[in-house]
Amino acid sequence: MAALQLALLLMSLASPLVPTASAADEDPLQDFCVALSPDELQQLQLTLNINGLPCKPAAAVKSSDFASQQLRNPANFTGNLGSAVNLATAATFGALNTQGLSIARIDYKPHGINPPHVHPRATEVLFLAQGTLLVGFVSTAPANQFFYQTIYAGDLFVFPRGLVHFQFNPDKSKPALGIAALNSQNPGASQLAVALFASNPPLPEDVLETTLGIDDDEVQRLIASVQGTLMM
């Protein structure tokens, strides 16, 4: 009995009940790995498929590679949602390659929304620089619990990795500005409405009707509405 107890104790020490946290992306193996631009890749005629982006030779890296003006201005507002996301990733800012980080500027018009979406590879922390936002996400455990908060300039809010979340500017007269950091150099983003009603090729209408409990006319209306929102 004593030997069994000792074995169980050793097993518990070797396999702690609380797992250690890990980064969303792999840790870098060197101080930096500035990504080659698409033009540089083409010049080198690289056709490798790797997890990340190829690195410039260290001797070719310059101080200016670590600076970017990408977020000085908002992205273009598309559709009638009233939000514009300017996301700097390793693909647009090479110094982020292997650093496990992306950063976004999000501009919201009055009553604008960054609609429900997910980032499959990243947790997001939002800093509200200007205005007011209603923000929230839906958890999987507890199942389908809605966590939400109205935040103001200077506040932070965390959206856990892979969970459906949104940001909405409730002010009908003033814009808002947020800065979001994500712990992946390629966080990915999938809007729920677009994934359901504007995929390419389209999802089978029978799937949408059965899943949502609606008829064909309503499916057609939603498809037209979502696609119209994207084009306006």
Score class of each variant (00 low, 15 high):
N169L: 13
L101G: 00
S190V: 08
N73D: 10
I214V: 15
N200T: 13
G112W: 01
S63Y: 00
A59L: 00
S22F: 13
N76R: 12
T89F: 07
N144T: 13
V219M: 09
Q5Y: 12
P115Q: 07
S199T: 04
L133N: 10
L41Y: 00
S184P: 02
S64F: 00
L6K: 14
N80W: 11
F168E: 10
V61D: 03
A198I: 05
P28F: 06
G52Q: 06
A129S: 15
V194W: 12
D217F: 07
H117K: 02
S199I: 08
S199G: 06
L44T: 08
C55L: 01
R121S: 09
G162E: 05
L4E: 11
L41W: 00
A58S: 07
A67M: 03
A122M: 02
N200M: 04
I151F: 07
L212R: 14
F146K: 12
P115T: 06
P28A: 05
F166A: 09
F159A: 01
A122E: 01
S63C: 04
L87Q: 05
P28I: 13
P142F: 03
L6H: 09
A153L: 10
Q30H: 03
E205M: 14
L101Q: 05
T210P: 01
P120M: 04
Q99D: 00
S173H: 12
E40K: 00
E40R: 01
S37H: 07
E124H: 03
S15V: 15
D27W: 07
G213E: 14
N49I: 10
A180Y: 07
A176K: 10
F137N: 01
V158L: 06
G188Y: 08
A198F: 06
L46F: 01
D31C: 09
D25G: 03
L156K: 11
S199C: 09
P175G: 11
G79S: 12
N86S: 08
L222Q: 02
H165A: 02
C55G: 03
A181M: 11
I103D: 01
L6Q: 12
T98M: 04
Q227T: 13
F66P: 00
A176Y: 08
Q191M: 11
S102N: 06
L182W: 13
S22L: 13
G82A: 05
Q130Y: 09
D65S: 04
A7H: 11
A189K: 10
K62E: 09
L208S: 15
T211L: 15
P175H: 12
K56M: 06
L126V: 14
L17D: 14
G178A: 15
L87G: 02
Q5G: 08
G188W: 09
F127E: 04
F166E: 02
A181K: 00
A129F: 11
A181D: 03
G79K: 07
L134Y: 13
V138W: 04
C33G: 02
A14F: 10
V219S: 10
V118K: 11
I179H: 06
M11H: 13
T89K: 01
N51F: 03
I179K: 09
G154H: 11
Q99F: 08
T132M: 03
V61C: 05
F168K: 03
Y148K: 15
T150L: 04
P160V: 03
D27L: 14
S139G: 15
N186K: 15
A58W: 00
P115F: 08
L196T: 09
Q99H: 04
G94D: 03
F146M: 10
Q149A: 09
